[in-house]
Computed example of a mutant assay.
Amino acid sequence: MIDRRTLLAAGSAAALAPTLPALAQGAAVTPPFHHVMVGGLRATVVNDGAATRPDATQGFVVNAQPAQVAAALQAGGTPGPALVNPYNVTVVRTPRGLVLLDAGTGATPAMQVNMRNAGLDPAEVVLVAHTHFHGDHIGGLLAADGSPAFPNAQIAVPEVEWTFWMDPAEEARASEMRRPGFANARRRFAPYAGRITRFAPGAQVAPGITAVATSGHSPGHVSYLVADGDRQLMVIGDAITTPALFMANPEWYPVFDMDPTQAVATRKRLLDQLATDRIAVVGYHFPMPATGMVERAGSGYRLVPLA
């Protein structure tokens, strides 16, 4: 049996997925970007490459048997056992400038190249708002030389997430596998000192963009509701990943979830809300174009691409 301490360690180590030998980094993803209109706001999902897990039936879904995972992948259109894990950053053009929701991995130049190809200038980014601090979401804050990748940007972070990863006491009692995540967070945010704002769920971080509590995957994980008039788009970070597995089976949880019980409760609540209220969704680790509507399907849910 895997206990919570082991899961915490594994989740934090897996958060640095681009550096793990089990994941082959650098796969090209098509399309590289996708525009979605939310009333008068335009959201663009920009791909930042992908990693490949050679065998997703082994050790990825903690509370399911390999045969169950293999069947779910096949039912979702993935032959398996290999699983391509994309990284997708959402960029919202607001009246004040471009807002990034997460910063990408920083492992390759893919995101900034794809931003420019989508007509988005990284120099126009005025805010980077984070869902959480796992390495594949904050790595892109820095350029290769360690300078800020978004020199004109302010930074917005969930209060609980910041408190956890910046706490020396949490770092001191962390396992050897989990501890690198603390140093990584400090390093990624350091060049932005003086430009960092902490917020609680429910805060409007930018015009039309509101933080929504979705903790469990990490201690202070938030999603972002992008809204204009009666149009809505929920950018969910890692609250739900790999639709073929965790939409179809909301009670399953990946090794990345730091608090599995809370993560499952959050996932089920969020899926119900998305399906009931007909809110479009963007997933950081969904296959591109990474957007769609959530529909109930038997005991679970499925992602239906936007028309």
Rank of each mutant, 00 (worst) to 15 (best):
P243N: 12
E171V: 08
P21E: 12
P260G: 14
L73E: 08
D228L: 00
V113K: 09
Y87F: 14
G216I: 02
A265T: 12
S215C: 03
A28E: 13
V45Q: 09
F60L: 14
V125Y: 01
E251D: 15
W165G: 07
P254Y: 03
M115E: 04
G80Y: 00
P207Q: 07
T291C: 03
G140Q: 00
P81A: 12
R178M: 12
G26A: 11
P32Y: 01
L274R: 04
P66E: 04
P260L: 11
E176W: 12
L142I: 02
N117A: 10
V226N: 04
A172G: 06
A185T: 13
N85E: 11
H137D: 07
L274F: 03
M37S: 14
A290C: 07
A9W: 03
N47P: 02
G77Y: 13
W162H: 14
I279S: 07
D259M: 11
G39C: 10
N85H: 03
R231V: 07
F133A: 01
V89H: 08
A107D: 14
N85S: 11
G104E: 14
G97M: 11
M37D: 12
P86W: 03
F164A: 02
A123F: 04
P260Y: 06
L142M: 07
R53E: 08
P86H: 07
L100Y: 00
I196G: 09
H285Q: 13
T105Y: 03
D272P: 01
V99D: 10
A28G: 06
L23W: 14
Q154V: 00
D167N: 15
P148R: 11
G97V: 03
Q65P: 02
